[in-house]
Design a binder for these strands. Sequence first.
DNA 1: CGAGGTACCTGACAGC
DNA 2: TGCTGTCAGGTACCTC
Length: 286
Amino acid sequence: MPELPEVETVVRSLAKYLVDRVITGGTVLDGRIVAYPDDTGGFIDKVTRKRIDSIQRRGKYIILELSDPESKQGEEEYELVIHLRMSGKLLYQDKNVPIPAHTCVVFDLDDGCQLRFINIRKFGRMHLVKAGQRELAGGLANLGVEPLSPDFQLQDFIRRLKERSARIKGLLLNQSFLAGMGNIYVDEALFRAGIHPMRKASGLSEAEIARLFKAIRGVLQDGIEHRGTTRKDYVDADGQAGDFQNYLQVYGREGERCKLCSTPIERIKVAGRSSFVCPACQKFER
DNA sequence: CGAGGTACCTGACAGC
DNA sequence: TGCTGTCAGGTACCTC
């Protein structure tokens, strides 16, 4: 479900509730969600009586820093690493609100509320690792550059694209190349840049890459400003839908007219994913 | 390295 | 109404 702007929105909506809360207990309703550690029982024991010091986003991962207020500095510090995959939701709700269907984990908080992970397709995962052990947390340690950070630099981007023969869409979806882009925002960025998704990365001109660089940052920033894209069931921690679906230029618009040139938008398959393009604005050469 | 397939799951929707 | 097929915001793993 969620890509970078949706995950960022979830993190921001959760931060105002979770920071400095203490986890008083919890329940794992479906053990499949706990990818690490192996013993699901130990999972709840380890987070109980921990304080949530911070909540951050890295790519599409959500990271809660946990520490034990009772223990000495540096001891018993954990990171709870969460990936929502296609259909995961994190909701902050009063404990008296009925538990939604498909809830896999519930964390009890010291303010009488609960953090609940709803995981409809059961693809979402959590890893609980000791601070500094991020290599145990799935793909987190292998993420590429963060596109909205100052580390994302045009000259670097040009150099790295020039050495790859893969199709640009697949590369932008590759989380170890660039962190956080998914199917919607890749299609939107490529449209803004006027680049066909099947073009080879190494075949793009510097001018095209410069447009793409700007388009990636622009589309992600706009997505965040609009609190994400809700096509189906994405909501933030308050259960509130996003708004960016009203501003999509190509994604999901097969057969509708391009907003720039009125050519009908086409749907094709690229990198195994449905891809939406304007065949006039995004020409496929080579 | 790159491409394509499968698998993991549930639900929504189109078509018959 | 109800069946079947297809599709979905993601990623890991396999083969060629």
